[in-house]
Write a protein that binds this DNA or RNA. Structure first.
Lengths: 237, 237
DNA sequence: CCTTTTAAATTGGTTAGCCAGTTTTAACAG
DNA sequence: CTGTTAAAACTGGCTAACCAATTTAAAAGG
């Protein structure tokens, strides 16, 4: 077990090492936006690692918009100067795994915004999707079954109706992680789920009547109950 | 040029096709959390694509927390039921590339929160980092040079001081894309940069004196100027 | 029939080599 | 010396073979 963890952190540290070496190279050679990096083969030889490792590191930096790979041509420094490049790579390297608290804070922030935007921008089709998710949730709760999935889908339907693909994407990223934590700490019990029905309906109605302020307030109420309960669980565990 | 775009969309569509086929398989076989997917080899044969393509698709679903690959063992359905799985994959497939407006909206939302959290949680070290970024910015502006990078680093320093790794990560993700758009539309002119000095100082002082409300207000002021200018640019272009 | 042991098959990950474009170099004509 | 052309070298992506760990099957022992 220990070894498995070590292996994983080893892989992580290897990637971080390669990323920092790429940064060093950029600094040493004073590469500016648009300049070409050495080929993956040369970098892998220079760093004493496999080409796959280099590719993975480059892919990560591409994901953060710092590099850009062009097929059959090369990898290029993105339209970002060396100063910002250094600062950002530094931040990326020091970025730690998000804890539960971090995820919850971000979720609340995002949802209080998406619900507002959804109230302003929702189409009739969005409304239909939300209503379906809402009714699926209610049905499960009334039947006394677990409704975590349906709850998730209702909230994601709101995110989609917000018509902001960045926030929608972020919601898709963090929600599953939160759900996993919820189930781990056994949040979302039956009685809480019953209360959730009314709260969801209130949110839905506010979005339907295109009242952003009310929608935000109802979402706030929803979270208040949920996370008060949640933090109690956390403290007692 | 047309062909290049076609090739890219082809690759994208291929991955989306594979992802939807994986979803279909999960539905058809009624796979539940913890169940094992067929091996990458079998899936690649079944779908008539290369193993690399299957791996990439699985990696993406892993990124969104829907699958989990264990070395020398197999790929497993994450702790998420079929209903949520279907909904999420559907959302992921329909997710569109974020536009400029989407990015700006999200940035404002995130920064109004991170600046508040930074005021509450900043350590003395955070404060030092922010001050350094601030002074680097001022120096460049006073010298009449472009200070986009230094501006970026100041805002990222705030994100780091917020002590929320999820928001910090999100900021790192969207900021470069916004910067690119800024430079494309030639936002951030000299006169605007001069005004930026005072606004940055006001934000910094509010964080220093641990006044979250004031910090948020000063950030709001900062954005007001910036994006009023920005939207004018957009409209005229 | 059940438990233990062992060997064969299967797995995700890794590696070396191949491919189709791109880029650089060199050859050559004017 | 310059502009054009062709060919050689280089590039990121892709393919197939390989690897070590794991899982399954079967064989052995009780």
């Amino acid at each position: 077990m220990k070894l498995e963890i070590l292996a994983k952190t080893d892989g992580r540290n290897l990637q971080k090492t390669i990323i920092s070496k790429i940064r060093d190279h950029i600094n040493l050679k004073n590469l500016e936006p648009g300049d070409k990096l050495p080929s993956e083969r040369m970098l892998s030889e220079k760093f004493g690692v496999t080409r796959s490792n280099v590719r993975d590191a480059i892919q990560k930096l591409e994901f953060y918009g710092l590099l850009e790979s062009k097929p059959q041509s090369g990898t290029f420094v993105a339209n970002i100067g060396v100063i910002a490049m250094n600062g950002m790579i530094d931040d990326i390297l020091r970025l730690e795994e998000p804890g539960f608290k971090s995820l919850v804070e971000t979720r609340i922030l995002l949802e209080l915004k998406t619900v507002r935007l959804a109230a302003l921008r929702r189409t009739d089709e969005d409304l239909k999707t939300m209503k379906e998710a809402l009714e699926a949730y209610n049905q499960k709760v009334i039947a006394g079954e677990d409704a975590v999935q349906e709850d998730l889908l209702f909230h994601l339907a709101i995110a989609k109706a917000s018509r902001n693909s960045t926030m929608n994407n972020f919601m898709l990223l963090i929600t599953p992680k939160i759900i996993t934590n919820f189930e781990k700490y056994h949040v979302c019990d039956k009685n809480l789920a019953n209360q959730g029905i009314e709260e969801h309906i209130a949110i839905y109605e506010a979005i339907k009547s295109q009242d952003p302020k009310l929608a935000k307030q109802k979402m706030k109420d929803h979270f208040n109950v949920l996370y008060q309960y949640c933090y109690n669980i956390k403290k007692s565990s």
